Amino acid sequence: MFRRESRLTAARRGLDIAVGDAVRAADGLSLDWTIDSAGTRTRYGLLRWDDIVRARFPRPDWRRLAAVPALLRRLRRSGYERRLRREARSFALVIFGVHYLYLLFVALSLGAGCLLPLLLPAALRPWSLVAVPVAAYAILAALMAITRGRPFYCAHLVDDTAFTHDHAAGREPRMPPRLDALAARIRAAEGTADEIVVIGHSSSSFLGIELLDRVLAADPGFGTRGTPVSFVTLGSVIPWIALDAPASGMRAALARVAAAGHIGWLDVRAPWDWLSIHLRDPLTASDVPSPGKGRPATIYVRLEDLIEARLIRRRRWNLFRMHFQLLMSSRDRQGFDYLAFVTGPEPVHATIERLGTAQAGFAPGMAVRIEA
């Protein structure tokens, strides 16, 4: 996707962007490539955790049958569902909607399974009762397979939610070592480049917080010795995990990274993206005190700047496609373009400083859209 979209950005903006071949790191931690554009070379590393996703998605239906009602009951009793709906109406509608849709599928499957004896001869009906659970389970499995993709993404979103809350409670043991290893690599990169930028899209927005917190815990002076460090979140879902009661470690990490003013932070928001949380800044929305205006700096991106009206009509309800639109080329030469942003000649830290300084002067409650 990066290679394809960079060609589009280069053509639209009259740039020369050369993307090197992607190479898997020897330790398997990342997929790495280089980009050359306008005399600037960018080394781009993508943290790999697709193996963790494959190990957890999709889960067997028998596990969902037990886990989904228990999770929904816990989130409702703790007040999490109410708080998330307050901070992210569209996001909560999607997330809780697919869970209640799953429960509806369970009820429909059980009902259809109970009809099975009525279709058989009277002599076989007593024996057919033992087949009801098997038939209902098979129907449920078929429904989940049918709704796995768009527009529902039911199995994926239900399993993704389970991963997020397990990670919040420290019950996902495979992710912390991955973040520890990448944190060590980022620390070692200080002094080897003009700047270091950590980028988190979607769930990687909260993983990026944990990653930087690990770096700062090991080296509080990181980012103060001449190599600027920046953090960029796109399509952020930080409150999704931070509002959960067991996520005390995440909230503490969020507060520490927010307080590290020498690390720039830019939050790129898309109000049209139903799979992101964008009504307020991620700190306030997570019940974490904000250090002040301009932290993080913010860019609001219009969908009309990214794709043509005919494509909007076609893709609007393809929620995952819309969620990834922020990482793609922009049709508007003056609007935000992710490829131009990460490969362009202006350092990311300079962009963040410029935006943060401008936004710090605005009064609270003012709606601000800044082009980049």
Rank of each mutant, 00 (worst) to 15 (best):
R314A: 13
L84I: 00
D61S: 15
A88V: 04
R73N: 09
G200F: 03
L15D: 08
V348Y: 06
W272E: 07
A55Q: 00
L46T: 12
S330H: 05
R369K: 12
D180E: 06
F320L: 15
L46K: 11
A297R: 03
A217D: 10
S109I: 08
L254Y: 04
V53D: 05
S78Q: 03
P289H: 01
V342M: 09
L283D: 05
L306N: 09
R314Q: 11
G113S: 08
D180R: 08
A10W: 05
R4L: 14
F96I: 09
H156Q: 14
A253G: 00
R187I: 05
R12Q: 14
W317I: 11
F336Q: 02
G356T: 02
R86W: 08
D337G: 05
E190L: 05
R76C: 09
D281M: 07
G361E: 10
V197R: 04
G335I: 00
D159F: 01
R13I: 08
S248M: 12
D160N: 15
H99Q: 13
I370L: 15
D213M: 08
A255H: 02
G356F: 02
L234R: 06
P69K: 00
D36L: 15
A55K: 01
P296G: 01
V68Q: 02
L303W: 09
F336P: 03
I17V: 08
A138W: 12
T42D: 10
G14R: 08
D219R: 09
L243P: 01
M328W: 13
G235M: 01
H262K: 01
G344P: 00
V68M: 05
R77L: 07
G261N: 02
D159H: 03
R24Q: 14
A259S: 07
F320G: 11
A10F: 03
A22V: 14
R82A: 08
G361Y: 08
L182F: 07
D159S: 03
L103S: 07
A67K: 11
A218N: 06
R76E: 13
I370S: 13
M250N: 10
A253D: 04
R74Y: 03
D273N: 01
D273E: 00
P69E: 00
V301R: 01
A112I: 15
A247F: 03
D213K: 09
M144L: 15
V130R: 15
V134S: 14
